[in-house]
Each structure stands twice: as structure tokens, then as C-alpha cells.
Simulated scan of single mutants.
Amino acid sequence: MAKQAEKPSSDGRVARGEMTRAKVLDAAERCFAATGFDAVSIRQIAAESGVTLGVVGFHGGSKEELFLTVLSRRAEALNKLRREALKALRETEDYTLDDLVDAYITPYLTIASRGDPQWRAYAQLIARLVSDDRYFPEVRELYDPVAREFLDAMIDLKPNADRQVLATVLTLTVSSMLSIVASSIRVEALAGKPAPTTPLEYRKVLLDFCSGGLARAIE
């Protein structure tokens, strides 16, 4: 009976630990997104998350380790959805390049449209990273395996296509997707009217733009 009485307390500590870890990761994500990796200190992350420096270190490790953990938790969620979408297409045995592009960008647009500000912070962070090659060696294995699977599927459809051209267009597709999720203020300013309220509302125009570029590039 005594052991049973201890379990809720133990479970409670685990739950509190998980909540604190999530708070630290969320705070780190916001800080990295706002000013970039170099400008952020562990002290800032601790202040943002409302915990001590020791707690940040316990849950995140070094700043570099914390940075990779912030990225990997989002990459895991995206990779799962993209692989599921790709699997569903392959099972139909009747899909197009447009379908592959859609399967790659729509999971991200969908998640980013759920209203979670942390995913917006992630988009802003990734938008920073794609223009800085310093981070590529550390983060490529978070994203490249799934990207290669999509490139393989494209080659299956277009065996004579240049893989480098396909990789270039996919990279440009990702940049367009990240940019529109991170901020639509430029679109709104140029259009002279309110921009769509969610990234998912850009799905059609983004798909048309990226798919059209892909089709033209491999003509």
C-alpha cells in the first residue's frame, strides 16, 4: 500500500519535469528565432523561461545541444507527417510531381496554421538558418533523409531529370515555404490589403509557384 501511495508523487514529478523541459525548449526557440544563435545566451533563455541557469543546463545541456534539441523536436514531427503523405502517394501508384510537392509543403503549412506561436518562432528560426552554411553540418541529418526520399520519388517519375536540378528546385521550394510562414508582412504591404490569416491559405499559390518552377526546370 505504501508503494502505491508514492506513485502519484513520482508521476507528478515526472510530469512537472516534462513541463519544465518544454518551457525551456520553447523559450530557447523564441530566443534563437528573435536574434539568432550567436546573440543568445543561456542566461537569456533562463530568464525567458523563468527558471535558473542550472535548470536550463539540466534539461538542455550546452547551448549547442539545446539548439539541436529545439530543431530536432520539430523535425521529427514534420518528418513523420511527410513520410506518411509520401507513403500514401506511393501506395496509390498514381501520383504526379505536383502531388509530391504538395505532400512536402502541406504538412508544414498545416501545422503552422494551428495557431501555435512556437511553430511561428520555429519558422522564423529556420528562415535564419537556411542562409547560413555554418549550421548545415549539424542539422542536415534532421532534414535531408526525408528530402532525399522525395527526390527519389521525383526521379522515379522523371528518370531522365537532372537530380541536381530537382534538388535545387526543392531547396527553393523550402525557402519559399519558410518565408511565407515566417512572415507575410511583405505580401500585405505590396498587395495593399490584409494578407491571408494562416499559412495554409497560401497553399494553392505556393504549390502553383513551386510546381510550375519544377516543371519548367526539367523540361
Rank of each mutant, 00 (worst) to 15 (best):
S41M: 07
S41W: 01
Q44A: 04
Q44V: 00
Q44C: 00
I45Y: 10
I45V: 12
A47S: 12
S49T: 00
S49N: 10
S49C: 08
S49W: 06
S49L: 07
G50Q: 03
G50L: 00
T52Q: 08
L53E: 09
V55D: 15
V55Q: 15
G57S: 09
H59M: 03
G60V: 01
G60K: 06
G61I: 04
S62H: 02
K63M: 04
E64M: 14
L66E: 06
L66Y: 05
F67I: 13
F67G: 14
V70C: 14
R73L: 02
A75V: 07
E76W: 07
A77W: 04
L78E: 15
L78G: 11
K80M: 05
L81R: 15
L81C: 14
R82A: 08
R82Y: 01
R82G: 05
R82I: 04
R83H: 01
R83W: 00
R83K: 06
E84N: 14
E84A: 13
E84T: 07
E84K: 12
L86I: 04
K87W: 02
K87L: 09
K87F: 08
A88I: 03
L89T: 02
R90L: 01
E91H: 04
T92I: 05
E93D: 13
D94G: 08
D94H: 13
L97D: 11
L97P: 11
D98M: 03
D98I: 01
L100W: 01
L100G: 07
D102K: 07
A103I: 01
A103D: 03
A103Y: 00
Y104M: 07
Y104G: 02
Y104Q: 02
Y108G: 08
Y108V: 01
Y108E: 11
L109Q: 04
I111L: 06
I111F: 04
S113I: 06
R114M: 08
D116E: 06
D116I: 00
P117I: 01
P117S: 03
W119E: 14
W119P: 00
R120K: 12
A121V: 01
Y122K: 12
Y122D: 11
A123D: 09
A123P: 10
L125N: 04
I126D: 14
A127C: 12
A127W: 04
S131H: 10
R134C: 03
Y135H: 15
Y135A: 13
F136N: 15
F136G: 11
E138M: 14
V139A: 14
R140C: 07
Y143A: 14
D144G: 05
D144A: 08
A147C: 05
F150N: 09
L151I: 12
L151H: 13
D152I: 00
